[in-house]
Structure formats: C-alpha cells, structure tokens
Amino acid sequence: MSATIVLADDHRIVRQGLRALLEAQNDLRVIAETGDGLEAVELVERLRPDVLVVDVMMPGLNGLEVTRQVRQRWPTTKVVVLSMRASKPFVAEALRHGAGAYVLKASGVADLVLAVREVITGGQYLSPPLSREALGAFARNAEEATLDLYETLTGRERQVLQLAAEGLTNAEIGARLSISPHTAMTHRSNLMRKLGLHSQADLARFALRRGVLPFDE
C-alpha cells in the first residue's frame, strides 16, 4: 500500500514538477494539490493524507501556520516543509511548528523523496547542508538566551524602580533624584509597562524577586 500525499505550493509549475517527481515513485501517491494555505488545511481535514508537502510561502495561510494546525489537529499527518532558504532560524521555527522535514527547493529532486520517506517512518529529515547537530546547537542558544526584563530598564528607571518599591511617592522620588514629580511618574509608568507590572504590589513583588530590594528591611 502506497503512502498518500497532499501537495501545497502556490507555484503551479513547481507543483507540477514535484507531483511528477513524487508519482514516479511506486510507493507514493499524490492525492490532491493546492496553491492556497487554507485549502491545504481543508484538504488535510477531508483526505487525512499520510504526508502534507507544503511550501513556506503560501497565500491564504502561511506554510508554518498550516503546519501547526495540521499537526495539532491531525497528528497522523506528517508535514514536509519546502523552503528556498537554508536559514537555521527558519528551520528551527518550522520544526517548532511541527514539521517533520525541511527541504530546500534548490536541493536535488531526490531530496524530497528522501524526506517524504523519512517522515512516513516517523523520522526527521533536513536537506543538506543542514544538519540536526548544527540545528540543535542553534536552538539551544536561542532558547537559553531568554531575556531578563530588568535588563531593558534604563539607569534612571532602575533607580526609580528601587525607590518606588521602597514605597516612595512620585514627589519623594522626584526630590530624591532631583527630577520633577511628573518625570518620576513617567519613569515609573514606563518601567511598569516594560516589566508588565500593573500595581504597586506587582512592583514590590518584582523588586523582591529580582533582588532589587533586600528581604530584611
């Protein structure tokens, strides 16, 4: 029994080329094709293919979003993403959205067949020169480098944060820092916005957690 494939690419010529290529394989069968992202999702819903081959660039709904929805709703359908770009961030993003394979359009035609076969068996495939190792390192870096919001504050905002957390009013902060109460208020609202804080209690909690305020005092 051959695996069923839905093909989604907005370029008809590319689509035809790919279809010819895939159908030349005995064990693969293209059961539908489309040039629109939304239609691709509908087709998957209706036909429940084994594999969806989808271009990143799609009108209607972009390829990654199609991938995400498909993988979320019908996990039995594996997705091969086609892309022009051999960029690690993009690959990582595609994989994060649930793609099983990332195939460069510029790669040789055999690459796509390899990828389809790989995903059907539950594996992952990346077109050369991409490699899982390089990608892994990148992804780790990208994930680990999460942001401490405190770093985004300006020097002045940090001073205001500390004084505000100590319970000083805008007027008192202004007097302490030799700025107008109005300016102090602006700094305070800016830093609260940056830190996503909504109340004085939030502010004090943040200051405690972040160690801006010592616990004993």
Binding site: V56, M57, M58, L64, S87, P89, A92, E93
Partner: peptide
C-alpha cells in the same frame, strides 16, 4: 524580508542577525 510574513518576527530577526 518575505520571511517576516511566513516565519514571524523572531526567526526573521535571528536570520537577519546571522
């Protein structure tokens, strides 16, 4: 950057950084 539409801000910026 066409990728902005397809990939979103973060991947596109990461790509740009590279």
């Amino acid at each position: 950057p066409a990728a902005l539409d397809d990939m979103g801000l973060l991947p596109t910026l990461l790509d740009h950084f590279e």
